[in-house]
Simulated scan of single mutants.
Amino acid sequence: MPDSPEKRVTLHGFNNLTKTLSFNMYDICYTKTVEEREAYIAYVDEQYNSERLTQILNAVADIIGAHVLNTAKQDYVPQGASVTFLVSEGPVVEAPTDDAAPGPLPGNVVLQLDKSHITVHTYPEYHPTEGFRTFRADIDVSTCGEISPLKALHYLIHSFEADIMTIDYRVRGFTRDVSGRKLFIDHDISSIQNYIPPEIVSAYDMIDVNVYQEHIFHTKCKLRRFDLNNYLFSYTKDKLGKDEQENIAKRLQKEMDEIFYGQNME
């Protein structure tokens, strides 16, 4: 919980702590034909082009209270996009609180910030023979000072329909109080899950790997409920025979487990 105003630590100069949130998501699909594969890749490439990604990053900047100084964006051939923002703490007058609660959900591109940045890169790809199609997006929100990138986590989760998420948060460097004593972290945190809405936590299997003494926090998430219809592009499972449904479902779940655990399963 945030300190009350009378207990807030008075710093000597600027808060030099660097807080970095890395949000990595995967959307997985199964397609039977080359035409379906190309249609899926075209769909996600359009759905998450640089313009849409820029809108997402602008919302992130608003949520964490950052001022965008510069934006760079690029769509790639044959697919993929990048956006980068350079941002600053100003013109925020009062920094957001650091309470362990999900950030707001409003109704990317590289943004450049003063001493801080927000970036997103997308990576559509497909298996050469198995019919699996994967869309991956990597978002990094790195801030200096009192603004917290964790405030944007709620919004990011809702901006991407993710089957699997890997989330990393780290606090680096130090700042000083007025007596010169070093502060290596300026807020309490026990898990990234503290910043994820309860309805999302209940929908995913989650694994934490935290190194508390180094202020490193890592959470992996995989959807608990498997519905084959959510992984078929342009048709539903009733178009398939029962044996084919079971075969595709088994292969898809193996693919998801391999991504979630970060290893091939023979």
Score class of each variant (00 low, 15 high):
residue 177 D to W: 11
residue 23 F to M: 00
residue 153 L to D: 09
residue 126 Y to M: 07
residue 126 Y to G: 01
residue 128 P to M: 06
residue 1 M to F: 09
residue 160 F to Y: 15
residue 124 P to M: 13
residue 62 D to I: 02
residue 49 N to H: 14
residue 2 P to D: 13
residue 200 I to Q: 13
residue 17 L to V: 05
residue 120 V to H: 06
residue 36 E to C: 00
residue 212 Y to A: 01
residue 48 Y to A: 11
residue 90 G to W: 11
residue 139 I to S: 14
residue 109 V to Y: 10
residue 107 G to E: 09
residue 103 G to M: 13
residue 166 T to W: 06
residue 78 P to I: 05
residue 114 D to Y: 14
residue 95 A to I: 02
residue 239 K to E: 10
residue 146 E to K: 13
residue 59 A to R: 05
residue 106 P to F: 07
residue 175 T to I: 01
residue 81 A to D: 03
residue 86 L to S: 02
residue 10 T to V: 13
residue 123 Y to L: 04
residue 200 I to W: 10
residue 140 D to P: 04
residue 166 T to Q: 14
residue 129 T to F: 15
residue 182 K to P: 04
residue 152 A to L: 09
residue 137 A to H: 04
residue 50 S to T: 07
residue 85 F to V: 01
residue 93 V to I: 11
residue 81 A to G: 11
residue 260 F to T: 04
residue 206 M to K: 03
residue 176 R to V: 10
residue 157 I to M: 15
residue 133 R to V: 15
residue 80 G to P: 12
residue 16 N to S: 12
residue 235 Y to N: 03
residue 23 F to C: 08
residue 261 Y to L: 14
residue 177 D to Y: 10
residue 129 T to Q: 13
residue 41 I to M: 12
residue 38 E to K: 14
residue 200 I to L: 07
residue 107 G to F: 05
residue 66 A to W: 00
residue 28 I to T: 14
residue 200 I to T: 13
residue 4 S to C: 10
residue 24 N to A: 04
residue 31 T to F: 09
residue 252 L to R: 02
residue 38 E to C: 05
residue 136 R to L: 01
residue 124 P to I: 12
residue 175 T to M: 01
residue 191 S to H: 00
residue 169 Y to S: 01
residue 17 L to K: 07
residue 253 Q to T: 06
residue 239 K to T: 08
residue 50 S to V: 05
residue 261 Y to V: 10
residue 122 T to S: 09
residue 96 P to H: 02
residue 243 D to G: 06
residue 88 S to W: 04
residue 36 E to P: 10
residue 210 N to E: 00
residue 260 F to C: 06
residue 169 Y to E: 01
residue 122 T to K: 05
residue 107 G to H: 05
residue 214 E to K: 15
residue 32 K to D: 09
residue 153 L to Y: 07
residue 50 S to C: 09
residue 108 N to G: 15
residue 191 S to Q: 00
residue 55 Q to I: 12
residue 89 E to S: 09
residue 202 S to G: 05
residue 78 P to L: 04
residue 73 K to F: 04
residue 201 V to A: 08
residue 143 T to Q: 03
residue 139 I to Y: 12
residue 86 L to H: 03
residue 18 T to V: 15
residue 71 T to R: 09
residue 35 E to C: 02
residue 236 T to Q: 13
residue 53 L to W: 05
residue 88 S to P: 08
residue 107 G to V: 10
residue 144 C to K: 15
residue 244 E to M: 09
residue 139 I to H: 08
residue 57 L to T: 03
residue 241 G to L: 04
residue 158 H to T: 02
residue 90 G to P: 05
residue 221 C to V: 03
residue 100 A to S: 00
residue 50 S to F: 07
residue 262 G to W: 06
residue 226 F to N: 06
residue 104 P to R: 08
residue 51 E to F: 14
residue 24 N to M: 04
residue 263 Q to L: 14
residue 242 K to W: 06
residue 157 I to V: 12
residue 259 I to L: 13
residue 234 S to I: 02
residue 222 K to V: 12
residue 107 G to I: 07
residue 234 S to D: 10
residue 143 T to A: 05
residue 145 G to S: 02
residue 32 K to H: 08
residue 148 S to A: 01
residue 210 N to D: 11
residue 173 G to P: 11
residue 244 E to I: 08
residue 265 M to A: 14
residue 170 R to Q: 12
residue 203 A to E: 13
residue 59 A to M: 01
residue 211 V to E: 00
residue 100 A to L: 00
residue 257 D to G: 03
residue 164 I to D: 06
residue 70 N to W: 07
residue 235 Y to I: 02
residue 85 F to P: 01
residue 241 G to S: 12
residue 179 S to W: 12
